[in-house]
Design a protein around this nucleic acid. Structure first.
Lengths: 221, 221
DNA sequence: AGAAAAATACTTGTATACATATATACAGTA
DNA sequence: TACTGTATATATGTATACAAGTATTTTTCT
């Protein structure tokens, strides 16, 4: 998040570590957080741990129960669909704005990333890396800090589902071609078109992910 | 926010009261929050106050300084433009989904709200009320809780700018006609069209707000 | 034995005390 | 006078102690 305090306070390290554990599913969905135990486990006292927990609650990476406990939210197919939709809306907006504001240097940088993207299309991890770089560059060019903030939040959420939405070679090829179209649209100076392409691109990723998930046996959690 | 704990804990009342003071500009933009003073002012100790403050920071209604103080974010024209854009993206998405999922009863409810909207078009407060009711109904029909959450966050933010973006009669008439078009689009079953109309509708509101602000002398802060 | 009631253990919420960092004011020196 | 170094005061970060509420287990009564 942009507002991460650079200082190495105990609350901050607790936040980072707890978030990591949640996103990697090291803390299992549905699991409850007990403050005293978690505090000693992370080597801080309850006060800074509590601060980290409350922050994660407001980022929706933890969930406060009405009865008064805190737990790791369970995974669910509807949620992942919602997340993709919001991501589509954000990337669409950013593509539109990037199109309006991009300088020649920005366009060149986008083409550079695209080339690297093409070079690694057969390696899942590198391909995702470059895909994210492309989106990051577009986001930076768009210059809407709120869109970026929400996009980051959604991306964090989606990490929890990563294991269920493994990408196939076919999917990566499709993504690469969509990225090409997207960069062309941004470079072409047609904001409406860029927005639509970005939207459809993410929605296609959503459909692929949902298909991959329903293929994975009982599915979630 | 949906995740507001219903319990009447001290941290919660501090959060609500502090948020109110920020949104009504009772706490002035740029003003710093001193924990001991604010805690006694709100009648709680530093611990629950701190919890409220940290939560407001992660909702971007307070700002942590690198040096270590907390202050009320200053207002700025770029931000309001960004907020409108994100709101446009969210409402566009929700209009699309509402279009896909709306039942006959939903459509009827929308028409009812529209009628009430028309009846109060000359009263600024009531008109805004009904406008929000319309958007709320669409949001409910769309059924994307994340879109809703972000939309709510943005709306909260925008309250701080309310005093600067007073609506004119002309603007209200325009909004009513756009609402009519929007409901027709949602009812008509064309998701793409509904999405585009919602987007343009909010962007038009943005332009009106920016014009109103630049008319208000030195403007902001 | 089964159900209701009481007691116990544990968790969360809050206050407060203490340590550390930061800013302010003052004094001494160039 | 301007500047640096020191001392003081104040704010933030953290730990801990205590209060209040909840769940669980044990005990008692039918």
């Amino acid at each position: 998040m942009p507002d991460t305090p650079a200082r190495n306070t105990g609350a901050h390290v607790a936040y980072v570590e707890l978030k990591r554990q949640i996103l990697t599913l090291q803390l299992k969905p549905g699991e409850r957080i007990y403050e005293p135990a978690m505090a000693t486990a992370l080597g801080v006292s309850r006060t800074p741990l509590r601060e980290a927990v409350r922050r994660l609650i407001s980022e929706n990476l933890l969930e406060q129960q009405p009865t008064g406990g805190v737990l790791v939210p369970v995974l669910d197919e509807n949620v992942i669909s919602e997340l993709y939709e919001v991501r589509a809306a954000m990337e669409s907006l950013m593509a539109r704005n990037a199109c309006l504001k991009a300088t020649a240097a920005d366009i060149e940088a986008l083409h550079g990333i695209l080339a690297r993207n093409a070079a690694v299309v057969e390696f899942a991890d590198d391909a995702m890396q470059q895909g994210m770089a492309l989106h990051a560059k577009i986001a930076g060019t768009a210059g809407n800090s709120w869109a970026r903030r929400f996009h980051d939040q959604v991306s964090s959420q989606m990490e929890r589902y990563r294991h269920f939405t493994n990408s196939t070679q076919e999917r990566r090829d499709q993504a690469l071609s969509q990225h090409r179209t997207l960069v062309e649209a941004v470079a072409g100076g047609n904001p409406e078109k860029a927005a639509k392409i970005a939207f459809d691109h993410v929605m296609a990723a959503r459909d692929a992910a949902l298909r991959a998930m329903s293929g994975n046996g009982p599915g979630i959690s």
